[in-house]
Design a protein around this nucleic acid. Sequence first.
DNA 1: AGTTGCACCTGGCTGC
DNA 2: TGCAGCCAGGTGCAAC
Length: 291
Amino acid sequence: MPELPEVETVRRGLEPVMVGTRILRVEARRPDLRAPLPRDFAERVEGETVLAMGRRAKYLTAELASGDVLLMHLGMSGSFRVSRDGEETRSTPGTRAAAAAHDHVVFHLSSGAAVTFNDPRRFGLMLIVPPGGLDRHPLLRGIGPEPLGSAFDSNVLAAACARRKTSLKAALLDQRVVAGLGNIYVCEALHRARLSPRRVAASIATRSGAPNARAVALVDAIKAVLRDAIKAGGSSLRDHRRTDGELGAFQHHFRVYDRAGEACVTRGCGGTVKRIVQNGRSTFYCPRCQK
DNA sequence: AGTTGCACCTGGCTGC
DNA sequence: TGCAGCCAGGTGCAAC
């Protein structure tokens, strides 16, 4: 579910709550996430002060004073919520609720706040990476550049796509090409760049791997859509919530995603948004203005 | 080596 | 109302 803008929204929500506070107690209620929760998870985390909250691709990181890093992923349905310890922000008025279903990990903080990780589908994960091991960690090692960083430009994107025969859609979903994009923002970026998701990936590069005008437009579109989405607090379809329980708003700005049959919003286009399936996943695009 | 399909798991929605 | 079938924001791995 959550792509870069949603994960970044969560990071920004957790930062003021977590950083500088101590994790007094951890409830590991369900260990069978995508990667099993380490047996010594609570032990390694309890008593630690959080120094910083970071993000790499769709992963969240919490740097602990011990040097260990808490590495977290939301999968398709993960979310964090912040509450005053002992309270239940999602409970209906009047009910003194027990933990909600699918609350798998709860961090009780020295500030009196509690941070709860909820993940119905359990595609998320929570691991501990020893000091200095983050970049070498198998889950992060092969991941491409951060799209909002200066290291990501048309040269880099074109080089990563050069000679690839797969579709542009599939290439952009590949986290080794660029970090953090998922199904929504790939569709949205391609529409903004007016490029067809069905186009061969290599067609944004010259034979020597240099960028062409399409690569330049695509990089601009990726950066723009991610910035806009972060500004809106991400997109809330079903699961994504900010840590304060508020919904993101970017779903109201989708130009193609989940808009099959509706009019293309490109000025003067007059086309209709179409849904196709690529690599087993829905793609939304306008065949009229995306070439 | 690059590419594709599948599996992982739960819940919500649609249509009969 | 019930239930089957399909769909969902991700990703690692097996198989071509």
